[in-house]
């Protein structure tokens, strides 16, 4: 859902970084970290990014997507854990819950209890959002040194 909007935001940030780089010729790689809780479809995102990047310096960039597994922390006892693949599947197979989590990953915490102490005071450590980790830019050495 909404991968095109996300792709446009990514492209804007990539183009900003490109413009700020002296002698930049083209973007050769874009590294993304997609939190599984964002329920963003990586292939739809890749496709959308290809489309929106046409005729920009990023049009031939390789798109590397790393899926980031969720990690939770109990605010009562400090225990940290990652949900099993089965647990993640349960979320993505439930149409209501998956929509809610997709829109606002923070709602997931109201469905969780700490596996160690049973507290429901839980926070998300990682696994939400779509982060642009870094990009590779080809630069002309002459321009960058001038």
């Amino acid at each position: 859902m909404h991968e095109t909007s996300i792709a446009l935001s990514i492209l804007a940030a990539v183009e900003d970084a490109f413009k700020e780089t002296p002698g930049a010729k083209r973007v050769t790689k874009i590294r993304l970290q997609v939190g599984m809780l964002s329920l963003v479809d990586p292939e739809a995102l890749r496709f959308a990014l290809r489309v929106v990047a046409r005729d920009t310096p990023a049009q031939d960039a390789e798109i590397e997507i790393e899926m980031v597994k969720p990690r939770f922390r109990c605010l009562s006892c400090g225990y940290e854990w990652e949900p099993s693949d089965d647990d993640i599947k349960k979320i993505s197979d439930d149409p209501q819950l998956s929509t809610l989590v997709h829109i606002n990953p923070d709602v997931i915490v109201s469905y969780l209890v700490c596996p160690r102490c049973g507290s429901n005071n839980v926070e998300i450590v990682q696994g939400k959002g779509v982060i642009i980790h870094s990009i590779d830019i080809e630069v002309d050495d002459k321009d960058s040194s001038s």
Binding site: S9, I10, G129
Partner: peptide, 15 residues
């Protein structure tokens, strides 16, 4: 000469 630079962005577009 052409060379490659890595730019770290670290920006969450959803946030």
């Amino acid at each position: 000469m052409v060379e490659k630079v890595v730019r770290f962005i670290g920006k969450d577009v959803i946030e």
